[in-house]
Design a protein around this nucleic acid. Sequence first.
DNA 1: AGCACGCCGACT
DNA 2: GTCGGCGTGCTC
Length: 721
Amino acid sequence: MYVEVLVEIKAKQLDKTFTYKVPKEYQKDVKVGSRVLVSFGKKQLEGFVLKINFNKQLDYPVKDILSLIDKEPVLNEEMLELGVFLKKKTFSTLISCYQSMLPTALKAKKNTVVAKKYTTYVVLKQDLENPTPKQLLLINALKEKGKLLKKDAQEISLYAYKTLLEKNIIEEEKEEYYRLEETSVKKDKNVILNEEQEAVVKEVTSNLHTFTPYLLFGVTGSGKTEVYMNILKEVLKEKKQAIVLVPEISLTPQFVATFKARFQNEIAILHSALSDGEKYDEWRKITRKEVSIVIGARSAIFAPFTNLGCIIIDEEHSSTYKQENTPRYNAIDIALYRAKKNNIPVILGSATPSLENYTKAKLGKYHLLTLKKRVNDTMPKVTLIDMKESIKQGNRLFSKELYEKIVQRLNNKEQTILLLNRRGYSTIISCNECGYTEKCPHCDIPLTYHKTSNTERCHYCGYGRGKLRICPDCGSNEINQFGLGTQRLEEELIKMFPSSRIVRMDVDTTSKKGAHQKIIDDFGKGNYDILVGTQMIAKGLDFPNVTLVGVLNGDATLNIPDFRSGERTYQLLSQVAGRSGRGEKKGEVVIQAFNIEHYSIDTVKYHDFEKFYDEEVKIRKKLSYPPYCYLSLIKLQGRDERRVDEISIQIRRYLESNTSHVLILGPSNPTVYKINNIYYKQILLKYKKLEDIFSCFEDIYEQYKLNKDVFVEIDLNPIKI
DNA sequence: AGCACGCCGACT
DNA sequence: GTCGGCGTGCTC
C-alpha cells in the first residue's frame, strides 16, 4: 500500500506529492486527508495523505511513512476539494491552502502539539469484602454518584483512595473537556419581529434548499442580528448546520452572548483572540457534530460541517473577508462556492453594501432584501460642520457646535464617542515652511513621531532616529508635529473638560489581550463620559446611553490613495453615526470636515445610501473601476531593482501579446515601493471577463513560480492596490 | 524550506 | 595548495 503525501513545506518546488509506503500496522487506519509523519531528505516532516494506491510501479526507492498522526482524517472530502479550488483561485501552493483552512493544532506541522485537556474521574470497578470504614465511605459515595472527580474522591480519604486503586477496586477515568468556558449569562430576549424583518425571514426560510445568494441591505439598528437568528432557528429545525461570519472586530463577547442566549451550546466560536488550544476545542465541537452553528471571522468559512444549511456573512462590505497574505482568498467567494455545492442560501448583510455586491443585487444576480426602518424607528440627526469656517473663527480642533454638544452630554450624564481617523497621517513630522517630510531610508515611507521615546520611527521596518529640530531641506526650525493623534486629542480633551472621565481606544491602548474588551465594557457600564478612538470604535458597539458621536476629521479617509476611498469614507461615517441614539434617547452626530460638499460626506447626513451609490457608481464608470470591470494585480518584488523592472516589463509584454479586451496599467510603483531594501512593482489589470485573462495568469504563475531573484504574485480582486 | 554538491577567490 | 563564498538542484 502506497500513499501520496503533500509535505508541510510551502515552497513552490514542493507543490506536489511524494510517494511513501505504508507499513502493515497503519494500513487499516490510513485515509485520504490523514496526517502522517515522514522522513523527507534529512529531516522529518508532517504531511497530508492525498491519495492511496494499492500497487505502484516505481523506478526509485520508496520510504515508509514513520507514523500516522490522527485516527480520523483532519481534512474531509469537501475540504480536500475546496483546497484545490482555493489553489486555483489564489495561485498559491496547495499546502498553504490546506494549512489556512485548519486551526493551528491540526495543521501539518511538526512541533505544534496542542494537547487535549482531561479531567480525571474515578469509578468503582468491583466490590470489596471487608472494607475499612474510610474505604466503605468512598465505595458508597461511588455507588451513589456513579463517578467522582479524582480530587473529591481523594478528599474523602487519600489513603483509602490509594489502597483501593492498588487493589484494582476503583479505576481512574479520563474525560476530555473543552477550554472555552460557557459565558451564557445573558437572558434571551423574546423579540417580536416587525413586518420588514418577518418578510425577510420568510423569504429566506422558504428557500432553504436552493442555492440563492441574498444581499440583505438593512440600515444600522434595523435588527439584522434578530433576522439572522430567526433564519438559523429554521436551519436547525431541519437538522442542518450554519456558518455565520462576522468581522473580527465585531465578534465581541456581547455579540456572542446574544447568540448563546438563543442557541445555548449549539454554537462554536472561532476567532483570532482564542488560544490555539481553544480554537482546537471549538473545531472539534464541529467535527464531532456537537454544535450546529459556528460564529467566526474569515477562516471560519472553512468549518468542516457536512450538512450545511445556510451561510450568513454579516458586514459584507468589510475588507477583512479578504486575506491579505497567501492564499489571498475572499471568504465571500468561498461562501458562494460552498453554498452552490450544498444547494443552500447565502445571506450577505450590510448597512452599507459594497458597490460590487449592491450592483449585483440591482442586476438581479443577488436577491435583494431590505430593512429600511430602525427598530426604535428614529435615525440620528447628523450635522456637518465646515472646518474651513470653524478655523476662521479660531476653532481648529473642536468646532463651537461640537464643543457645545459635548458640554450638553456631560451635563445630562449621557455619553459621547469621538472618532479621529488615524489615516489622516496624524503623527507625521513635516516642515511648515517647505513641506519637507522625513522618510525612512529603507522603506520610503514617512516616519511617525513617538512621544514616549521622543523618536521618529518607521512603521514598516522599525528604523528609528531622534526627532528633527531643523528642516534639512530649507533650514527652518518650523518643523513640527503636524495634525494630531488620538493621544494628543485625549490630552486636549482633558484640558478642555478636566472633570470628565475620558478613555482612549486605539492600537496603543489595546495591544494587550483583552484590553479592547475591557475599555468597551467599562464604557458600557458608564465608567466614562467620553470614548476617543480610531476606526476600531466605529463598528458594532451598542450602547443606549450614547447620544452624541463626533467625527473630528471626517474627510481624512478621502485622501487615501485608493479608488475605494469614497466608499470607505461613506461606510465609516455611516457606521459611527449608527452608534448614536440606539436606545430610547434620540441620538445626534456631528461630522467635522474640510470638504463637507463631497458626496461621500453629505449623503451621510440623510442616511442616503442610494444617492451615495449613484454618485460613486458614476465615477467608477468614468474611470473604469469595479463594478464596471474586475481588477487583478500582479505584484513583483526583489532586491535588485533593475531585475524587478526587467521582469515586470517582460510580463507586460506577455500580457500585451496574449490578451485582448484587457487594460494593462503599469508596471508602476506601489504606494510603498521599498521595504527593507526590497523593491516592489505592480501591474494592474482591468477586464470585463475573467476568462479573457485567467489562462494568462496561470501561465505567468507557472513561468515565474521558481524564479529566484524576482518573486511574482498574482492577486485576483485585490482590496488594497 | 534546508541541505549537499560544486566551482572560483584570499589565505595559513 | 586549502577554506569558504553562495549559485544550483534535489528531496519519495
